[in-house]
């Protein structure tokens, strides 16, 4: 009853958070803020998975989240390495300054 309705609320919340993260990714130019928006999106997805696990009465949802966490960590590490490498070449660079690959 209440619990079931809440599940859908979790899903809705995750969707909204995902959208916020997506829009932020498209709008912000600062590379670090963009990485943070990606984290937002990943967290929304995590929430969704856990909710699904609850709704389907399955532990698999949480296992997936586990892996997402690990991979997200790895990804942030590499992303920050990229940001550092980029900032060395052009101090104060943002995402718009990397546009050599163009048609």
């Amino acid at each position: 009853m209440d619990a079931q309705n809440l599940d859908l609320a979790y899903l809705a919340l995750a969707a909204i958070l995902f959208a916020i993260g997506g829009v932020g990714l498209l709008i912000r130019r600062n590379p670090l803020v963009m990485i943070m928006c990606v984290e937002l999106m990943l967290n929304a997805v995590n929430l969704t998975f856990v909710t699904f696990g609850k709704m389907l009465n399955d532990i698999t949802g949480q296992v997936i989240v586990f892996f997402v966490l690990v991979v997200a960590a790895a990804e942030v590490v590499v992303g920050l390495g990229l940001v550092v490498a980029m900032s060395r070449r052009r101090p104060g660079a943002d995402a718009d300054d990397l546009r050599l690959l163009r048609g």
């Binding site: 809705a12 609850k54 399955d58």
Partner: peptide, 27 residues
């Protein structure tokens, strides 16, 4: 994007989640 997902949730209700229940391990 939000509208689509919300539409799915609202219209589908609990049927929106269509996975099989309790495949691997009981939560």
């Amino acid at each position: 994007m939000v509208g689509a997902v919300l539409a799915v949730i609202i219209i589908g209700g609990h049927n929106a989640v269509t996975g099989a229940r309790s495949v691997t391990g009981q939560l």
